[in-house]
Each structure stands twice: as structure tokens, then as C-alpha cells.
Design a protein around this nucleic acid. Structure first.
Lengths: 175, 175
DNA sequence: GTTCTTTATGTCAATTTTGACATATGAATA
DNA sequence: TATTCATATGTCAAAATTGACATAAAGAAC
């Protein structure tokens, strides 16, 4: 059971999802592509933590809808209480910043402007997710959606800090 | 040439360093252990991007001091100007947050308090690095240290945002 | 006297991750 | 009519990463 497996169980703890769904929603929890997700779902199913139902569709390709089991929920619940590890960030912008004196000033500005633009697009994306979670929290009792709400808020704060950095660094560069 | 290789070249672009030095200083640029660094240094040396000098010590074990070559500096300079990729964050706290409704309230608080403590220790560490870089920037002309200054500022802003999140989330939890 | 920490360099196997390849359907677009 | 896009599931090889193992010498703490 690696960390991503717990991420998949966490997503399934809210409700049934297909592998495709999970690959679309996993980003804020743990960044991974579908090539990692499909094999893990098979593994989790064989371990009895999830089950699936084949859903035949006429308009779209058939799909497998996975549901978490009692055993999977117990496994996840135990892990959630354990202390968290240290976050690991891989960002080549950090290296480029460190060596920025080697780049032409124009390239340096481009680097930061591109990252600022990326942050803005991320914020838009998270705003949509926030709208959804707020609907879920008001309609439904909302207990299951509280964690999703916390996580999206965290991501927004992370990205806002990044955007602020880009703006500050651009002013330091004297653009 | 992977990303970490450019990170090592970036660190060496400021001045000569040993593998051990690099493993201590690489953290804000790209998180990696010494088991990744030593083999890459051999590779970079064979590619002609760096050279090393064996320094014999009586009080401590002998060491290899690596210096970046013209060729290495050219390679790095070219790469620095290219656009940066997307940052990848792996943080199991995100998963635990998502599934926090499964944990006892006490455990949830512990999770956030532990992360807040980690953020504070990181901020202390970065404050020391900031003191050093400010000394270097005032003594020396400082052009080479500007990037390091930007990077440390970014890390501080990142960690401060994380700390703010933890405090906010703890208040939402109603501790 | 023994153990622990810091400095210092390295290897290795297992795991994780990435990116490409592969296939298939329906709908929209050019 | 051809191509591209979204849905949907999968495999595979290569690359990156982690954590343990390995060695060694000096100094400090216990």
C-alpha cells in the first residue's frame, strides 16, 4: 500500500468513481497519471479494499465503477490518523531562479510571467472546485465534504502565495 | 541530463563545492539524497561539465571539490532561459485532509499542529539562509547571489502560506 | 571505554513515476 | 469526409527516487 493507494481510497470514501474519474480528480491529493492509477485499482480490488461493477454504455465506452469496502474504509481510517510525512516539492523554476543571473533579463521576466499566468489558471480551476464543494456542503449534511473543502482552501492559499511571489520577484527584477 | 543535474550545475555556478556540500544545500532547489547526487557528479564529470580536485584532510575524511567548467556554465545558461515545467507536489497531508472526517477530532488537530510545527522549524532554517545570503549580497558585488535570495524568499512565502493554512484549518476544526 | 554525531563518499535493490504506445466509441468540428 | 476531442481502460520500458547497506576517521558525550 503506497501513498497513492490511500489517495484513491480517500476519493472513493466519498462515493463510487470510475478509474477515469479518479484520474481527473486525484490532482490536488497526489499528482499521478492514469498509468499509475489503473494498475493500483486492480491491486486494491484484489486486496478486497474496493469492488467494481461493470457499467455498459451505448453512447460512451463501457466503464468500471469502483466502490470502497468496509475493509478499505477501515484501512484508510487507520492510516489517516497516523502522522503525515514531509511534503516533497519538485519545481524546476527553483533551479532557474537560483541561476537566474545567467539568463538575459528578458528571459527572466518571461519565466516569472509564465508562472504567474499558470497560477491564475490554477486559481480559476480551484474556484470551480470550491463552488462545487460549497454546493455539496449546503445540500448534503456536508460532513464528508469538509475535508475536500479544507484541501481546496489549502491549494488556493498555496497558489496565491506563489502568485504573490511572482509579482514581488518581477518588481525586484525591475521590469 | 535530468533536472537534478541542472540543479547541481546551478549550485556549482556560484563556487566550488564537494558532493557532501551539495547534498546539504540542494534542498530548496530540488529535493534529493546523496545516493542520487554522487552518481550524477560522476556523470557530469565524464561529460566535461564539471571537474574535481581531491583534497586530502587529516582531521576529516578526504573530499572531492567539484568546479563547473565553461562547457557546464554554457549548458546551464541555455537551460535556464527555457520555460519552466509545472511544479509537482507530493504531500500525504493532502490525502489525510481529504479523508479527515474519518479521523477522530483529536487526531485531526494533531495532524495540523504537527505540520504547523514543521513549518515553524522550516522558517527558522530559512531565516539562517537569508542572513547568510544578505551578508554575501552586501560584501560581494552580489550579482551571483540574487537568485539564491529570490529562491529563499519564495520558500519563506510558501512555508508562511502553509502555516497560515494550518492555523485557519485548526480554527475551522473548532479546537 | 563505548556510543553517538559529523564529515565524507559510494553502491544497490526496490519502488515510484513518467511518457509513450495501444485500442475503441461517439460526437463535434473543419 | 477527415480529423480531432472527450470518454474509457489498459500496458510497458525507461527514468527517477528512496532507503538501506557499506566504510571510515575524528571528536564529543555518556
Amino acid at each position: 500500500m503506497n501513498t497513492l493507494s490511500y489517495g484513491l481510497l480517500a476519493l472513493l470514501s466519498v462515493g463510487p468513481r470510475t478509474g477515469y474519474d479518479l484520474s481527473q480528480r486525484v490532482k490536488p491529493l497526489w499528482q499521478a497519471g492514469h498509468s499509475q492509477i489503473y494498475p493500483l485499482l486492480s491491486q486494491l480490488e484484489q486486496s478486497g479494499y474496493i469492488t467494481f461493477e461493470l457499467i455498459e454504455q451505448s453512447d460512451k465506452p463501457d466503464k468500471k465503477e469502483y466502490t470502497i469496502t468496509e475493509s478499505g474504509l477501515a484501512e484508510l481510517s487507520e492510516w489517516v490518523g497516523d502522522s503525515a510525512g514531509k511534503p516533497v516539492l519538485k519545481d524546476d523554476l527553483h533551479i532557474k531562479l537560483y541561476a537566474i543571473w545567467l539568463a538575459e533579463p528578458e528571459k527572466a521576466r518571461q519565466l516569472l510571467q509564465a508562472r504567474a499566468a499558470f497560477c491564475l489558471s490554477e486559481l480559476e480551476r480551484y474556484q470551480l472546485l470550491m463552488d462545487n464543494v460549497e454546493k455539496d456542503r449546503s445540500s448534503d449534511g456536508g460532513k464528508k465534504h469538509f475535508g475536500r473543502y479544507l484541501l481546496i482552501r489549502k491549494r488556493v492559499m498555496d497558489v496565491e502565495a506563489n502568485l504573490q511571489f511572482c509579482k514581488w520577484a518581477l518588481s525586484e527584477l525591475g521590469s
